[in-house]
């Protein structure tokens, strides 16, 4: 059964089909949460909550479109809620990148750079993080971002451009 069939059946209340979508998209959803939250366990919990929220809103899924972007948009909003509840504190988990065996020197340097980029992302205010996530990782247009976050287009552009400026300043110091 392909993804479209799964989506079609899931919208008709088929739990098994929804389970198929979970298996297909859990890694993508988890990665959104990890970039937004920075901590593995919390990212897993947020991914779980995102899927539960998606299940409750399954009627809003258009089965003719790939469900991945729809799930990831829900995840961004779940993460923003989590960050709101958390009171804007940022956890920077040194073990946020799950263990891989240390390889050659170049690999270690690359991993260090990845860690620094993730840390830089986590230093941004939640709304800026969401803007970066939706534009750079989900590749949404400004209008789609505004719809996802329920914000005016001008706010979206302002958040995104400021987020990039902050990231550029942080990266310059790396």
């Amino acid at each position: 059964m392909d993804e479209r069939d799964l989506a079609q059946r899931a919208t008709q209340g088929d739990r098994e089909a929804f389970g198929g979508l979970v298996k297909l998209h859990q890694a993508g959803v988890y990665n959104v949460a990890l970039r937004m939250l920075g901590e593995c366990r919390e990212a897993e919990d947020a991914a779980q909550e995102a899927f539960l929220r998606a299940y409750r809103a399954i009627q809003t899924l258009d089965p003719q479109r790939p469900p991945g972007p729809w799930l990831k948009k829900i995840t961004v909003n779940v993460c923003l809620d989590w960050l709101g509840r958390r009171g804007h504190l940022t956890y920077i988990d040194e073990t946020a990148i799950p263990g891989r065996d240390p390889g050659p020197e170049l690999q270690i340097i690359e991993r260090e750079l990845d860690r620094q980029v993730r840390t830089a992302l986590l230093s941004l205010p939640p709304r800026y993080r969401a803007a970066i996530e939706l534009r750079h990782f989900q590749e949404l247009s400004y209008a789609e971002m505004a719809e996802t976050l329920n914000l005016p287009l001008s706010d979206i552009k302002s958040d995104l451009f400021r987020a990039r400026k902050l990231l550029a300043e942080i990266l310059r110091k790396i």
């Binding site: 739990r15 929804f18 389970g19 979970v22 298996k23 859990q26 890694a27 993508g28 988890y30 990665n31 990890l34 593995c40 990212a43 897993e44 991914a47 779980q48 899927f51 539960l52 299940y55 409750r56 990148i97 799950p98």
Partner: peptide, 17 residues
């Protein structure tokens, strides 16, 4: 992208309303 440390599907499916 990073791989989740565990398969999230079982706990998600178990918690579906």
């Amino acid at each position: 992208d990073e791989k989740p440390e565990r398969d999230l599907a079982p706990s998600i499916l178990q918690n579906l309303p």
